Amino acid sequence: MKLVRTGSWPAKFPFAIILLAAGVTFGTALWSLPSIGQETEKPTETKPELPAIEKTPDGMVKLSKKHDVWLDTKRKAIVVDGKICLREGQLEMFACPKGTKEHESIVALNCLPEEVHAGLLALGAKQGTTVKFDPEYKSATGEIVDIYVMWKEPDGTAKEVRAQELIKHAKTGKAMAYDWVFAGSGFYKDPENNRLHYQANGGDFICVSNFPTATLDLPVESTQANGGLLFHAFTENIPAKGTAVRVVLVPRLKKAEDNPNEKKAEKPAAEAPAK
Rank of each mutant, 00 (worst) to 15 (best):
E165K: 11
R5D: 06
V208S: 08
L229I: 04
D134N: 11
T44M: 09
F15Q: 04
E236N: 04
N210K: 06
V79Q: 01
M150G: 00
M176T: 00
S105G: 10
G227T: 13
T6P: 03
P48S: 13
N210F: 06
E115P: 00
E92A: 07
A225E: 13
G173D: 05
L123S: 09
L50R: 05
M176V: 01
P154A: 08
G186I: 01
K76T: 07
W151I: 10
A140C: 00
A256K: 10
E266W: 02
R246V: 07
K138G: 01
K66P: 09
L120W: 05
F26D: 14
A269R: 08
K98Q: 12
K98Y: 07
P273I: 10
D204M: 07
D217S: 13
E153L: 04
K152S: 13
L3I: 09
W70S: 06
I53C: 01
A272V: 14
I167L: 11
A22I: 14
M1A: 11
L216T: 04
V161E: 02
K132E: 15
E136L: 06
M60E: 08
T25W: 11
A52F: 00
V61C: 13
K2N: 12
N193G: 02
E104D: 05
T235W: 04
I147M: 04
L249W: 04
E266P: 05
L63F: 13
L249T: 02
A200V: 12
K83S: 09
A183W: 09
Q164N: 15
P154T: 06
K263H: 07
G203R: 00
C207K: 14
A29M: 11
A175E: 08
I106Q: 10
E41R: 14
V248T: 14
E160I: 01
L71F: 15
A269S: 11
E114D: 15
P43Y: 06
Q90T: 15
I206T: 07
L63H: 08
R75C: 04
Q90N: 14
I106E: 11
L33Y: 05
T6K: 01
L20F: 05
K101C: 07
E136K: 09
S8I: 05
T40E: 15
E136G: 05
G99L: 04
I36T: 11
A175Y: 00
A95Q: 02
A122N: 12
T172M: 08
